[in-house]
């Protein structure tokens, strides 16, 4: 049971949601946008999240958009990971999302909820980073569309009251060779030791990671190293480890040394799989 009360709001427009956030925040209610809500419920139950009001955005049409328009794939933030997988419209995102939690939970976990989660893995962002997607952000100043590689730095850099509404992906990326590999410590359902998503464009392999450091990331430096095809693959992988953007995670799921071992092996396999050996 969640040990505190909160108010529940169901706006039907983005403008209404953003306005509600401002009003509730001014009242000191620490509002949260609510999509799948799984993290708010589970962390709220153990007092690791508090809110006096949630703003459920599932009834806002833009948040549930699943469409291709002018060769752009538009995905609403309230689409569930199961819906994304079953649609087959963005296979890399579908498969990466299918590694999160379990199937029934993914009937509730949403794209926006995963990317904006407090839990550090946020694996659904990896395909968006690899495909230079853009995101539509609603806020008090209106709607803006921003490249995700500009606004995602460890996490989506939203200001208070801003809402991630949609992602926009050029469909030319959708059919490029890709792979997504998730390595867990033991069980089939768990957080990752290492998750790697990769695509091969006409010119190079792109790589994005979760579980290695305390945040998901795409590294142009690592991509540059991995695409030096004149150097043996094993050497490139060894060199890539030296350019991680933060210390390797060291926790109960895996020591830093073990994670590094898994990272190297998984990176090696990923590159072979996507055709860059």
């Amino acid at each position: 049971m969640i040990p505190f009360n909160f108010e529940y709001y169901e706006p039907s427009t983005i403008q209404e949601a953003v306005h509600l956030f401002k009003v509730l925040d001014d009242q000191g209610k620490h509002p949260l946008y609510y999509s799948g809500g799984t993290e708010i419920i589970t962390l709220g139950r153990i007092n690791e999240i508090y809110t006096g009001a949630v703003i459920d955005i599932k009834n806002i049409p833009e948040c549930s958009t699943l469409a291709i328009h002018n060769e752009k794939l538009i995905l609403g933030c309230a689409l569930t990971l199961s819906e994304l997988h079953d649609s087959g419209l963005f296979p890399l995102l579908g498969e990466t999302g299918a590694g999160v939690a379990d199937r029934t939970s993914r009937n509730k976990i949403t794209l926006g909820g995963n990317i904006c989660s407090q839990i550090i893995y946020r694996e659904a962002v990896l395909p968006l980073l690899l495909t230079d997607s853009e995101v539509r952000i609603a806020g008090p100043g209106g709607m803006q569309q921003v490249p995700i590689n500009q606004i995602f730095n460890q996490k989506l850099q939203l200001r208070k009251g801003e809402l991630f509404v949609q992602s926009i992906t050029d469909t030319s990326y959708i059919h490029m060779p890709y792979t997504a590999v998730k390595k867990r410590k033991v069980s089939a359902i768990d957080y990752p030791l290492v998750t790697i998503a990769a695509i091969r464009t006409n010119s190079m392999i792109r790589l994005a990671f979760s579980g290695v450091c305390s945040f998901p990331f795409r590294s142009q430096m690592i991509e540059e190293i991995i695409n030096r095809h004149q150097i043996p693959l094993q050497s490139r992988v060894e060199e890539a480890v030296n350019h991680l953007p933060a210390p390797i995670l060291d926790d109960i799921k895996g020591s830093a040394a073990y994670r590094e071992f898994v990272f190297k092996n998984t990176l090696f396999d990923t590159i072979r799989l996507v055709g860059g050996g």
């Binding site: 529940y8 809500g37 799984t38 419920i41 589970t42 459920d56 599932k58 199961s82 199937r103 029934t104 939970s105 009937n107 509730k108």
Partner: peptide, 13 residues
């Protein structure tokens, strides 16, 4: 028609 874990769903939803 779809399975849902009722412990991670609010009744209002």
């Amino acid at each position: 028609g779809w399975p849902m874990k009722s412990c991670i769903m609010l009744a209002v939803e």
